[in-house]
């Protein structure tokens, strides 16, 4: 496993195992997350890539019978987000997430983006308005919705909804942005939009993305991790992993021989 010393670490997964009841889903996974880089998690379905992503913001805490073992350290202070004394709320305030299926709230476009600020207790109207505009701009949605901010978010198209969800996550300026197959429910044109957006976002954000689309990973991600049956098989720069994989399982997967 290569570690790049020229880049700042944003987070670090250390010996992370995770189980759902008696079923072990992740097996001693370790990997770095670099600042202002996109890290992709790939692998056949059931390999644990989404599970790993959802560990980052403790999504699993919402359900019973889940068990973490190991650490995810948030740099620079090296705070272990999986520690019992860290409230999941804190983790989720610091690490944003966009889901597979666009899930705007049945509220207005404005209120959707403002939601994260509101739950933090931000009341200042001008601040919220600025932040909503900035986030929508970053998500490339501002020009399309600026005239209808009070209209319901559910009326937007699928691709717009997903960009709205991205804006919603950006509004609170998370330290890391998690994307869980953000284009799997979208048509090809919207997918292209989102991919361009993700590349654009790299300038300001650290992104971890789960995808089943290998082209998407190789096109957008700087680093790629290949997972298989709960194990992290290989982690490298996307260039290397997709051109000269070291592990035969990685090679089989990226050449489409299984999964």
């Amino acid at each position: 496993m290569t570690t790049n010393t020229n880049l700042n670490l944003r987070a670090e997964v250390k010996d992370l195992s995770f189980s759902y009841g008696p079923k072990k889903v992740l097996n001693r996974v370790s990997m770095p997350i670099y600042e202002n880089r996109i890290t992709a998690l790939i692998g056949p379905s059931g390999c644990g890539k989404t599970t790993l992503l959802r560990c980052f913001n403790r999504m699993h805490d919402l359900y019973a019978a889940t068990n973490y073992d190991g650490e995810i350290l948030l740099h620079p202070e090296k705070r272990n987000v999986l520690a019992r004394d860290v409230d999941p709320m804190e983790v989720r305030m610091r690490i944003g997430m966009v889901f597979q299926k666009p899930n705007p709230f049945p509220k207005s476009i404005f209120e959707n983006v403002a939601y994260g600020l509101r739950v933090r207790g931000v009341r200042k109207r001008s601040f919220i308005e600025d932040r909503v505009e900035k986030s929508l701009q970053q998500a490339g949605l501002w020009s399309e919705v600026k005239d209808r901010l009070p209209s319901p978010a559910t009326a937007l198209s699928g691709g717009q909804q997903q960009r709205l969800c991205i804006a919603r996550a950006l509004a609170t300026e998370p330290e890391i942005l998690l994307l869980d197959e953000p284009t799997s429910a979208l048509d090809p044109i919207s997918t292209t939009h989102i991919e361009e957006l993700i590349t654009e976002l790299k300038k300001d954000w650290t992104i971890v993305i789960v995808t089943h689309n290998l082209h998407q990973a190789s096109r957008t991600a700087d680093y790629t991790a290949f997972m298989y049956l709960g194990d992290l098989i290989e982690f490298d720069t996307s260039d290397k992993l997709f051109t000269t994989p070291r592990d035969p399982r990685t090679e089989n997967y990226i050449t489409g021989r299984f999964g």
Partner: peptide, 10 residues
């Protein structure tokens, strides 16, 4: 500030 906010919400 964040910790206080979280505690309040807890």
């Amino acid at each position: 500030d964040m910790r206080a906010n979280i505690r309040r919400r807890q």
